[in-house]
């Protein structure tokens, strides 16, 4: 475990906590895409099936349980909690997220390291995670008033991806045979999707103005 990965994991954890804080404490999910949250729940459910087959560390298992638990509880909150559900921007959150799931599944069936059930699902989760933020980015673009917590949530998620790239560069130079093209390319695609958001986020921060994405 290097400092970049630990920082990346902590940033990821912070993003989830920010979102839970907004939903649990303020009882609002305004500006949060349920489509993206559903995709993350699928991502973690398919990637972390190895909880049952392999053990890496207590840290690894605990974090997996945290991300599984938080992603499913966010989805349940948004769908079934009366007050939270009322604040959901249903009319704006119209991205056809199932159109992302099928191509990712097909791609995982075609491009993978090993053709086994767990390996294909693991690869599918990598491809799906890369594009899972898209419904959220579209919703942000449509939302007139992006509140601070929603902006911070997306900023932290993007930061987590950026730190993972630094982690891979570090591991490539320090660990022999650390080459993982599928992980790297999907991770790079995922990080690039945030580039636009990062630009406007830094602008709003610099000018001390409310974050607003151009249509």
């Amino acid at each position: 475990m290097n400092i970049f990965r630990l920082a990346g994991d902590m940033t990821h954890l912070a993003s989830v906590l920010v979102l839970l804080l907004k939903i649990h404490t303020i009882k609002s999910c305004a500006g949060v895409s349920l489509k993206t949250q559903e995709l993350y729940a699928i991502v973690f459910a398919t990637r972390y099936l190895d909880i049952f087959t392999s053990f890496y560390s207590i840290y690894n298992t605990l974090m997996k349980l945290v991300f599984l638990g938080s992603s499913f509880s966010i989805v349940l909150y948004m769908k079934y909690h009366k007050t939270v559900h009322r604040s959901y921007d249903r009319e704006q959150d119209t991205f056809r997220h199932w159109f992302l799931v099928l191509p990712c599944l097909l791609l995982a069936l075609l491009i993978h390291e090993k053709f086994t059930f767990l390996e294909v699902l693991w690869t599918f989760s990598l491809y799906l995670e890369a594009v899972a933020i898209l419904p959220q980015l579209v919703l942000l673009q449509r939302t007139r008033n992006i509140d601070n917590l929603t902006g911070q949530y997306v900023f932290l998620l993007g930061g987590y991806r950026g730190l993972y790239i630094l982690n891979w560069i570090y591991r490539y130079f320090t660990e022999p045979h650390f080459v993982h093209w599928i992980t790297w390319i999907s991770g790079l695609v995922q990080t690039l999707l945030y580039a636009d958001f990062f630009f406007y986020y830094s602008q709003s921060w610099k000018n001390n103005k409310k974050l607003q994405l151009p249509a």
């Binding site: 890496y56 690894n60 991300f67 693991w122 591991r171 993982h180």
Partner: peptide
Amino acid sequence: SSDEAAKDEL
């Protein structure tokens, strides 16, 4: 092995 190394990540 090398593919195990990627799966120790989250």
